[in-house]
């Protein structure tokens, strides 16, 4: 496999990758994940932090759909709409921080006495997100019922207006994701830090745009489900490795990423056989996980 050689100038380009017309296509990579999702869950024990919530929400998962229908009939349209709006708002606020949303939270803070019609309300919420906001509510963890919002829209070509302060971070994330992808789906953290050092991003120093880089990468990106940062078992001293997080798997197009990397190297995407194969496999779980 070829090493990633990224010069400083190219890094600038990478930083802008997601802003401009090179933004990865969300819709393309979306379908593929569906089937792979459950498989990866078992492995990832970090997600199941709050299993205590499980018993709490078991009560309403066991209601049959006909029961739900009957309960729905007791509610007025206005009541249902109002609740739907509250859930939409709640999820939007949570999503601003890109923190995954747990069903237990939705029930506890918003759904409350409407919990027995949860499935019906969520159906409407999902529809509203798609029709009004162009967002897709995805359950990334079917065991603990964790949701994220992902973007369904193709990016606006050449749009500079929508650029916000978060874009440098997105660029950094994109660099790390591409390192992981080009290295076969999983890399030791030292590989990532060494590559970033060449781009003058030092994990130990405060960076002008990123602040505490190590914290951003190993905590915030992980919390956002863009990266997974897991200890490699039986290592002394302790070592960690990075993988793509579930948000990245759903939102970032691998083929667009490969196209970009191959342009940097002035080669055809096909010359990275394994990556090309993975990037073009739309159906089925990705081979790396």
């Amino acid at each position: 496999m070829q090493l990633l050689r990224i010069s400083d100038a190219v890094f600038r380009g990478l930083l802008n990758f997601r802003n401009g017309e090179r933004t990865p296509n969300v819709a393309m990579s979306q379908k593929r994940r569906k089937s792979g999702m459950q498989i990866s869950q078992g492995r990832n024990s970090r997600i199941s932090q709050d299993q205590d919530d499980e018993s709490e929400d078991r009560s309403f998962t066991q209601t049959s759909s006909s029961q739900v229908q009957r309960r729905m009939e007791r509610l007025t349209v206005a009541q249902v709409d109002r609740k739907m709006a509250e859930v939409v708002q709640f999820i939007l606020i949570k999503d601003q921080k890109k923190v995954p949303i747990k069903r237990a939270e939705i029930v506890k803070h918003v759904m409350k006495e409407y919990r027995d019609v949860y499935p019906e309300i969520m159906k409407r919420v999902t529809r509203t997100f798609e029709q009004v906001f162009g967002l897709k509510l995805v359950e990334i963890d079917t065991k603990n019922h964790v949701y994220i919002l992902i973007n369904k829209l193709e990016p606006i070509f050449g749009d500079q207006v929508g650029m916000g302060p978060g874009n440098h971070r997105t660029g950094l994330l994109f660099v790390i994701l591409s390192i992981i992808f080009m290295k076969g789906g999983v890399v030791k953290e030292s590989v990532v830090w060494n590559t970033l050092k060449k781009l003058r991003v030092e994990p130990g120093e405060k960076h002008e745009d990123f602040g505490d880089v190590k914290k951003l990468v190993t905590e915030e990106f992980v919390r956002q489900k863009n990266l997974e940062y897991v200890r490699i078992p039986h290592t002394d001293p302790v070592e960690y490795e990075f993988r793509w997080g579930q948000r990245a798997e759903t939102e970032v197009s691998k083929i667009r990423m490969l196209q970009f990397v191959s342009e940097l190297h002035d080669q055809e995407p096909q010359s990275w056989t394994q990556q090309y194969k993975e990037a073009t496999t739309v159906e089925g779980p990705s081979s790396q996980r």
């Binding site: 009004v132 906001f133 162009g134 967002l135």
Partner: peptide, 9 residues
């Protein structure tokens, strides 16, 4: 939707 998403950002 695109316009709205940008406004939301």
């Amino acid at each position: 939707r695109r316009f709205l998403q940008t406004m939301m950002n």
